[in-house]
Design a protein around this nucleic acid. Structure first.
Lengths: 339, 339
DNA sequence: GTAAATGATGAAACGCGTTTCATGTCAAAC
DNA sequence: GTTTGACATGAAACGCGTTTCATCATTTAC
C-alpha cells in the first residue's frame, strides 16, 4: 500500500531564489576588484595580493556564493565527468566493475554519469552523443552492443575506453583474454577426463562471447570432439537462470558432463538446482564459474578469478589519460570442489 | 601480468578539433537566418517557416553540428541530471535500487550522476554542493551518514529525496516502515516459539537501523524478554560476513535461537556456513532475511520482501516532481524454510 | 474595409566564468 | 640610473545557447 501526502509546493521557492544568486560580477563589485581577480582567487591562481584575496574571500562568505559550475564547464570545455556505459547495474559483475571505476573517479576528482543500456543500441549512442556534446570528457564502455566502427566515429571527441580486446584501433582498452582463459579452463576439464563439455553465455553476440565461442570451436577441433550445438546455452545472466540450464541439460539424450558457466551467480544457481534435483556435483555434472565472487567461495565452486575491480580502476585511468593503451589482465583458475 | 602498449597521443587531435566545431552562429550564417531561428528549429519551437526550417536542418547535417550541451545547461539553468548518493554500488540492494532509478531516468530523459560515498560524509556533502552549483537538478540520497539538518540547508537549491522515513520536514521520501516491518518479523518469530532472538545490522547508525533497534527494544519490553546486547551484531553487509555471524553466535553461552538478518546475502552466508558447521536450520538456528533476493528463493530462506525497484522508481519520480510527497511502501513476509 | 489575432523573424540581453592581452608597479640587476 | 623581470590588475573577448521583446507580415473576423 502506498500512502501519499502532498506537503508543499517547491516551485515558488525557485523563482524567488534566482534573483538572489550572486555571481562573480557581484563579488567583484563587493570586493572592489575585477572579475578576473575574483576568478583568480576562485581558482587559486597566483598574482593576487593577499589583501584583495581576503576581500574576495570575505565577499564569498558573506553572500554564500557558489560557482555556477555550468558556466565553468562551458568556459573550460571540460566537465570532470566520465560516462560509464553498462548494460545492467544489478549484476554483481557490473556492480563491482562500477565500484572499481567509482573509487578511482573519486580519487581523481571526477564524477561518473551512468548509462544503463540494457543492451539497447540507441542508449549506447546517446552516451556517445554526450561525448560529442561535451557533457562528458570521456567514455568508458563496459559492454556494448553497437558496432565498433560507430564508436570510432566518436573518437575525435574524447577518449573512449573499452573492456574487451580490440585490435588495431585507436581505442584504449582493459580486458582479460577470454579466448586464452576459456581455453585454459577447457583444457583443465579435458585433463580431468571430461569429453562432453558444454558452456553457458550471457548473450550470443559480444566480443567476449565470441572469444569464448571460438576458443570452444578450436578446443573441440584440437581434441576431435563432436560438436554438439545443444551444449551452448545462452541467455544466462542471473542466479535464477541456473535452474533452466539444468533443465535443458536434463532434456538432452547425451548431456554434457561438465559446464563452463557465464558467472558464479549462474553457477550457484546451477549448484542449488542440482542439489534440489539430487544431481551430484561434480560426479554427474562438473562446473567452472567465472569471476570468483564470494558466492563461489561460499559454495565451493571452482572458478576463474577475474580482477574486476582492478579492471575498473584501469579503465578509469585510461579514460582520463591522453595516451591510448591496451592493458590485458590475467585471469586465474581457482580449484575448488565442482570439478 | 599486465601488458601495456602505448599506441597514440590523443592531445594533438583535440587542439585541432576545436577550430572545427560549428556553433549556432555559424549555422545561422549558413542558413541565412538569425540564431533565434536556429534555436527555434533546434528546440522544435513553432513559428518557423518550413522553408527556413529545412535550410537550418540542412546546415546542421552539412557540418555535423552538435549542440554544446554545457551552453544549453548554462542558459537554461537545468541539466537534466539527477544525482544519486549511495554508499556502495556492489551490494545487490543498491544495485537494484539503482536499476529502478535508472529505468525511470531513461524514460524521462534524465541522466544519473553517481556518488558512491562509502558512507563518508564529505562525499555526501559534495553531492549537495553539486546541487547548489546547479550541476544536478535534484538529488536522491539512498542512504546517508550526514545530518538531516545539513541536508535541509540545501533544500532551496533543488528537490532532495530520501529513502527513509522522515518526519515533519520539507523532504520528499520513499521508504518502508522498518519499525513496523521489523516488529512484524519479531512477532512472527515469537509466535513460532522463539524467545532468544538476535539480529544483524549493516551499520549501527542510520535511520533504518535505528528503527530496527527501537522495534527490537519495544519487542523485548512487550514480552518481557531479557535484553542481551550480544544479540545485536553489526557490520554485516556481504555474503561472507555470514560466517563471522555464526562464529560469534557459537561463542555465546546462551546463543539466540533465531536471527533477523540484514539482507538475504548475509542470510545466505549464514546458511552456507551453518551447513558447513552442521548447524541445523531452522532447528538450531532460525533465520529471516531481508529483500527477497533471488538467492533467498534459491536457498529457501524466509525473508521480508521489499519492493526495491519500485522504491527506486518512486524515488526518481519524486526527484523530478515539484510536489513534496512521502511514500510508504509495503514490505511482505515470505515464509520459506528457515523459520 | 478595418480591427484584431496569429505567424515569423531577428537583435539583443542573459546565463556566468575563464583566459588572454595590455598596462602598470616595484624591486632586483648591472 | 636604467634595464629587466616578476608581480598585479582590469578590460574585453570568448565559450554557446535560450529567451524576451520589438517589429513586420498575414490572416481571420465582423
Amino acid at each position: 500500500m502506498i500512502i501519499l501526502m502532498i506537503r508543499n509546493d517547491y516551485s515558488k521557492t525557485t523563482t524567488l531564489k534566482v534573483k538572489f544568486m550572486t555571481n562573480i560580477k557581484d563579488l567583484a563589485k563587493m570586493a572592489n576588484v575585477s572579475v578576473s581577480t575574483v576568478s583568480r582567487v576562485l581558482n587559486n591562481h597566483p598574482y593576487v595580493k593577499e589583501e584583495k584575496r581576503l576581500a574576495v574571500l570575505e565577499a564569498i562568505k558573506k553572500c554564500n556564493y557558489q560557482q555556477n559550475i555550468n558556466a565553468v564547464h562551458l568556459s573550460k570545455g571540460k566537465t570532470q565527468l566520465v560516462g560509464v556505459v553498462l548494460p545492467f547495474t544489478d549484476l554483481p559483475y557490473f556492480g563491482q566493475l562500477l565500484k572499481g571505476i567509482a573509487n578511482q573517479a573519486l580519487e581523481h576528482n571526477y564524477k561518473l554519469i551512468i548509462f544503463q543500456t540494457n543492451y539497447i543500441e540507441s542508449r549506447e549512442l546517446e552516451a556517445l552523443q554526450m561525448l560529442k556534446q561535451k557533457q562528458i570528457d570521456s567514455l568508458i564502455i563496459c559492454s556494448r552492443t553497437c558496432n565498433l566502427a560507430l564508436i570510432q566515429e566518436y573518437l575525435s571527441y574524447g577518449p573512449i575506453v573499452l573492456c574487451e580486446k580490440v585490435e588495431d584501433t585507436h581505442l584504449a582498452a582493459t580486458f582479460v583474454n577470454h579466448y586464452q582463459t576459456f581455453m585454459k579452463a577447457l583444457d583443465y576439464l579435458y585433463e580431468k577426463g571430461h569429453r562432453r563439455i558444454g558452456y553457458t553465455l550471457g548473450r550470443k553476440t559480444g566480443t567476449n562471447s565470441h572469444e569464448r565461442q571460438s576458443a570452444y570451436a578450436d578446443f573441440i577441433k584440437k581434441y576431435q570432439l563432436p560438436n554438439n550445438p545443444d551444449y551452448i546455452i545462452t541467455g544466462c545472466y542471473h542466479l535464477e537462470d541456473g535452474a533452466q540450464v539444468v533443465q535443458s541439460i536434463q532434456a538432452m539424450s547425451d548431456p554434457p558432463s561438465a559446464l563452463l558457466v557465464t558467472s558464479d551467480q549462474v553457477a550457484a544457481g546451477i549448484v542449488a538446482y542440482c542439489q534440489n534435483q539430487q544431481i551430484a556435483i561434480p560426479d554427474e555434472l562438473a562446473l567452472i564459474g567465472f569471476d570468483n565472487q564470494p558466492i563461489a567461495k561460499m559454495l565451493g565452486i571452482t572458478t576463474i578469478e577475474i580482477p574486476i575491480e582492478e579492471i575498473g580502476k584501469s579503465l578509469f585511468l585510461q579514460a582520463i589519460n591522453e595516451e591510448i593503451s591496451s592493458i590485458e589482465m590475467e585471469a586465474k583458475l581457482i580449484e575448488r570442489g565442482t570439478v
